[in-house]
């Protein structure tokens, strides 16, 4: 059983030590509770394809909101990177854009993510993979 007092001190310490990580991880934990952090929520697929796609859409929507309304600029910047990574996972695992944004803008966001060495390697790698797929063939757009 979790204890509210120790939990609250742990968040406070997480904010102090890794201020930029906590918001995306907390958001992922709210939306996909069985994954330990945002990277795992994006990169570890659910065995059920439909459920996996549903989760990616949920995460995409969450990161999109945080990208616009995050409390701090670091939250917003990191949410934007995770938003791009979630869209990349949609391309890699489901062969579709889980967004109605223009493909050229999406590719640009994916290239920025792939080149950002401050980001987790798994996210950069999934972005590179999605870029390769999108350059190879036409990706179906969300209706």
């Amino acid at each position: 059983m979790t204890d509210p007092l120790t939990d609250s001190l742990r968040w406070a310490l997480a904010i102090g030590s890794e201020p930029e990580r906590s918001a995306v991880d907390w958001l992922a934990a709210e939306l996909v509770p069985d994954r330990p952090d945002a990277v795992a929520a994006i990169c570890e697929a659910d065995p059920e394809s439909d459920e996996d796609l549903r989760r990616l859409r949920l995460l995409k929507s969450g990161f999109k909101t945080l990208r616009l309304s995050g409390e701090h600029s670091t939250d917003r910047r990191l949410a934007a990177r995770h938003y791009a990574a979630t869209i990349a996972a949609g391309v890699v695992r489901h062969g579709c854009w889980i967004t109605r944004q223009r493909p050229d803008r999406l590719l640009s966001a994916l290239q920025d993510l792939a080149a950002d060495d401050a980001m987790d390697d798994s996210l950069r790698s999934i972005a590179s993979e999605a870029i390769a797929i999108a350059n190879d063939r036409l990706i179906e757009q969300d209706s």
């Binding site: 904010i15 918001a23 995050g70």
Partner: peptide, 13 residues
């Protein structure tokens, strides 16, 4: 959920 995250961060701070 993103509202909750903002609140959690504010509370931690």
């Amino acid at each position: 959920a993103s509202f909750l995250v903002n609140g959690k961060r504010a509370l931690g701070q």
